[in-house]
Simulated scan of single mutants.
Amino acid sequence: MARKPLAESVFDDLLERVIDGTYAPGSALPPEHDLAASSDVSRLTVREALKRLQAQNIVQIRRGLGTYVNPAAQWTDLQAILRYASTTADSPDVALRLLEIRRMVETGAAELAALHATDEDLARMEEANIALRAAHEVGDLDAVTASDIAFHDAIFRASANPFLPVILGPLSQLLYTMRRATSSFPQVQEHAIEHHQVVLEAIRTRNPEIARKAMQAHINQTYDDYEHFIHQQQRHQEIT
């Protein structure tokens, strides 16, 4: 296997230290000569790595003052963001931010599905709902998660817009982890079963506005449920 260029190795190492909190947001990185010595590379190599970090807005270089770490919310590189998010995939904040993305994308998908869904698309949604109810009854969390994803994937397919899966594709692993976390609460599962059927019936009306509102209500309910149970868990931890 070919070795990474030195600047790329230094970049990866510095990014990992930012992600693991060694260099926290707002803190300064060590001077170039210290980074070069600790990595056993030239200052020129370190400078290359820092320029790449700066290009992705992971750090800002303040001339004469040093290099400072930016909060992850300011980063502009998707791979770096995914790398950061994957280490905090079970964080309530990450789950809620992903739900916000789902709300923005999936309400539009439901609108389009109301216009374009075929009988086969509607059958796929119904099958996913039947599978979700069956998985809920036996308490199979993995099957619940898979059925939930299958329902929403069927809506994406029914939208007849090939770009929708591409938008969420890079987030698929994080979304699965989040879906499994939110579905771990029985009440969330029960609400999902109810809302999925409402969404399906709304798409059957062929009215985009009705479908959008039904999907928005579903995602909002999931958001509220998850936030409620997370707060319950936090209070329980404080008490114990």
Rank of each mutant, 00 (worst) to 15 (best):
M1K: 10
M1D: 09
M1L: 07
A7I: 01
E8A: 05
S9I: 00
V10I: 06
F11H: 14
L14I: 15
L14Y: 11
L15D: 08
L15Y: 08
E16A: 15
R17E: 12
G21W: 08
T22R: 15
T22Q: 12
P25K: 07
G26D: 09
G26V: 07
A28W: 03
A28H: 07
A28P: 02
L29N: 13
P30F: 03
E32R: 15
H33N: 13
L35R: 04
A36P: 02
A36I: 04
S38T: 09
D40V: 09
T45M: 09
T45R: 06
R47L: 10
E48R: 15
R52G: 04
L53F: 01
Q56N: 12
N57W: 05
Q60D: 10
N70E: 11
N70D: 05
P71N: 08
P71R: 09
Q74W: 05
Q74H: 07
Q74R: 12
W75D: 05
W75F: 07
W75Y: 06
T76V: 12
L78K: 01
A80I: 02
I81R: 06
I81W: 03
I81T: 14
I81E: 05
L82I: 10
L82D: 04
L82G: 04
Y84L: 10
Y84A: 08
T87N: 02
S91P: 04
R97A: 13
L99T: 00
L99F: 04
E100Y: 12
R103S: 02
M104T: 04
V105H: 06
V105W: 03
T107P: 01
G108A: 14
A113L: 01
T118W: 01
D119L: 11
R124Q: 13
A128C: 00
G139K: 02
D140F: 02
L141R: 09
I149W: 07
F151Q: 05
F151C: 06
H152M: 05
A154C: 08
R157C: 00
R157N: 02
A158F: 04
A158Q: 02
A158G: 14
A160T: 02
A160N: 06
G169W: 01
P170N: 01
L171S: 08
Q173A: 13
L174G: 10
L175D: 11
L175R: 12
R179V: 02
S183N: 14
Q187S: 10
Q187F: 14
Q189V: 15
H191E: 15
A192V: 10
E194G: 07
V198P: 01
A202T: 14
R204D: 01
T205I: 14
T205L: 11
N207R: 12
N207Q: 13
E209H: 13
I210M: 00
A214R: 06
Q216V: 06
Q216W: 07
H218Q: 13
I219D: 15
T222A: 14
E227S: 10
H228E: 09
H228A: 12
H231A: 11
Q233N: 09
R235T: 12
R235F: 10
Q237W: 14
